[in-house]
Design a protein around this nucleic acid. Sequence first.
DNA 1: CTGAAAGCGCTAACAG
DNA 2: CTGTTAGCGCTTTCAG
Lengths: 352, 352
Amino acid sequence: MQRKLPPPEQHAVKLRDIAEAAGVTIATASRSLNGIYGVNPLTRERVMQAASRLNYRPNRLARGLVTGRSQILGLIISDIRNPFFSEVARGVEDAAYSAGCDVVLCNSDLDPQKQNHYIASLMAKSVDGIIMNSVTALDQAEQERLALSGVPVVLLNRFTSLAQFSTISADNEQGGRLAAEYFLKMGHARLAHLTGPRHHGNLSQRAKGFLQAVREGNPSASVIVAHGNHTLAGGYTMGLKLFREKHDVTAIFAANDALAFGVLKAALECKIKIPQDVSLIGFDNVDLAAIVHPPLTTIHQSKYEIGEAAVNVLLRLAKAKDKSPENRVLGVELIERESVRNLKSKGAKVSR
Amino acid sequence: MQRKLPPPEQHAVKLRDIAEAAGVTIATASRSLNGIYGVNPLTRERVMQAASRLNYRPNRLARGLVTGRSQILGLIISDIRNPFFSEVARGVEDAAYSAGCDVVLCNSDLDPQKQNHYIASLMAKSVDGIIMNSVTALDQAEQERLALSGVPVVLLNRFTSLAQFSTISADNEQGGRLAAEYFLKMGHARLAHLTGPRHHGNLSQRAKGFLQAVREGNPSASVIVAHGNHTLAGGYTMGLKLFREKHDVTAIFAANDALAFGVLKAALECKIKIPQDVSLIGFDNVDLAAIVHPPLTTIHQSKYEIGEAAVNVLLRLAKAKDKSPENRVLGVELIERESVRNLKSKGAKVSR
DNA sequence: CTGAAAGCGCTAACAG
DNA sequence: CTGTTAGCGCTTTCAG
């Protein structure tokens, strides 16, 4: 004969329990715990005691249901495996942690369907705000619906068709310009730019700055532009293609470091030496850029800080009456390492 | 004189609205939407129509409040910037997405306080399950409380003091063994093992397998073990120290790739050539291991699959009556690249 | 098959 | 300063 087992999941202690334990109603209990002004310090103390004694954890779903806010932030990015996004995500998470928020992670692969799914799902959870990679994959109507929904949104790229979103981003255009100027200074005139899909907000800006600066700096310079995936695999594929077609480019500007790493791999395979045969500049200044061989010259942007800033803007938006969007642009910087050859110092070794 | 502004945030459409629109009560509306057996196909159709016409999104907080489940999974890891965890996280997120769940990301840095905070916070949200890096940083009482809470938990390391948790992990011990055997086969006998903090579940297993295999394979071999941070920075620090102290080790087993990358950086700085002067093996087989210079010989583990599997176990646990823990161990494999020198083929070049 | 009604646990007026 | 009372939006018995 079996004895009845005790309930396997111990009943969570709720506000009512601690109210009883403290000899007050749940209203005062709630007030005490939420530190609302206007409650007797002594009763309050009693409540706090009871709460910690019973190890009380407010049910956040219940609270969210009534307050309409959930202390949850949504982060929609292309792919967390891109080290750029890992860094951003960490910045986001740390800032959210400090603010007592949780962050739900969404990988969209820039797929519009997934993005819409995530937006809907996040809104269904009454998130306090959404940080998104980009919104360009969404059609106009969807963008408007999002803007009208009232959920604070900050985008991680600078330009949007709708001016209603806040944005935080690095100065991508300037970054492209720096890469171009450096190549020209080093005597390169047959260039290639390997980048991601057309119309990708940030990458387009990089291309724009790069091409502009090339034209301005050396109108007779040539530049091949190729589109593909802005990933290690994409860079590998584009690099292979470029090297095999025997273009006579002497310098490649990769739209991000991941892509540049792919080019490195392709070069290795094609027995092309970097920078002796071809020079390479990346973008992001990911940790590993310093470690690959050769150490990658790249454009630095403050990834962690972008994540932090995004959360701060979001939180300001969430509490402020004034929801006017904020647009912040962070500076970039060329980090000189060893993947670019100086063609001007004839016969000289790689610049070091 | 101002007119009253319309409510800035459009009132979300709720179950009641679609019930009215379909001419039924919210009860049948609910049943229809949730596909519960026992509702007239025609009424049901009417409800569905109304729902999609009004673009209805059920409030998940409300639903969670009553059902006790939230369709949210918690993922607590050390640091998303570690590419190992990025991969795992992507596996987790994809599997969760397929199951209609969201995942909230928590970076613990293995700090017990943070871990506890996150666990509490997740439980307050009635998460359907928690995937954790490891639980060893928590004291016995906390572990027990977690186990008793009834929330499904799966750990990403194999051994736990409490046998009540499910675990998914690679065969770390075997991985360590493979590294050792390979070094010995290549004629190395003065070894070093650079690893993370003591008592780190997975890393300890790697060390254990490594040391055991060394002892068994060549009892007269020496091995220095150093503890630090299992990060790029940690590897750099430990590598620098090792190289500067002029130990005569010929081969280093780094407990993970990030750490190995740090060693690479240190070597570069100390003008130590890898593998000519010192050989190196990593662990994880992160994407970039193939790209660094020299391409890193490392132990492969299936990161993405670990994430996927963790979610699947979690979901099974969540719905099953039977909550008996499941322990799954995934195989590992040595990936031979170019960071290990063959000392046996005298005068020969690096094995290729 | 459908409706009425009772909450899930909490906050927020509104009285006292 | 504290208690009473409505709900938040949804699911889920229990009747019909």
